[in-house]
Amino acid sequence: MEPVRNIVGRALPLARADVDTDQIIPSHWLKRLERTGYGPGLFEAWRKDPAFVLNDPRYRGATVLLAGANFGGGSSREHAVWALLDAGFRAVIAPRVADIFRNNALRNGFVPVEVDADTVASLVAAVRLDPATTITIDVEHATVQAPGVRATFALDEFSRTRLIGGLDDIALTLRHEQDIAAYEEKRPEWLPRVR
């Protein structure tokens, strides 16, 4: 994973609530075997509408997605995060991000930023007024800033360290291999083994 310290960029005002992962990347894209190349499938169904905000040339090159409450609910598909990354997005700002999406995002250096609905509304208004508005997400201090807007968001110490360090989760865990082996010694005998 690449280290992520700051995200400075323009934003796309999606501004819809309950955006599920089936909308972010429809299921037929999940038949692929790769981690990359999902960008063209991002919001594939909604994109067919010429008026859909992702088709608006004023927002081309946006790296921050502004969404409504409960973003990324539904399916556990990490492909949703891969599609957003592949299309150039680095963070989502929403009043609430679904649990599995949040986990997947953090493991790919995609920053889930939960702020209150009023802050999201202010950012959406600012960006609609001037699509060139720059939003700055500071991962180290867990803050979001735009002209006239400043907010903090929750980011636990561990996630912050991993994002900033671009650390490999598996290598981190394998440092505790002895703890894992010790745990395995005391598991109850009746637990099932598949083979």
């Binding site: 981690r35 492909h79 599995i100 986990n103 997947n104 598996i170």
Partner: peptide, 9 residues
């Protein structure tokens, strides 16, 4: 439910 990175983990 978990994502693919977690599956690998």
């Amino acid at each position: 439910g978990i994502g693919t990175s977690e599956i690998e983990h």
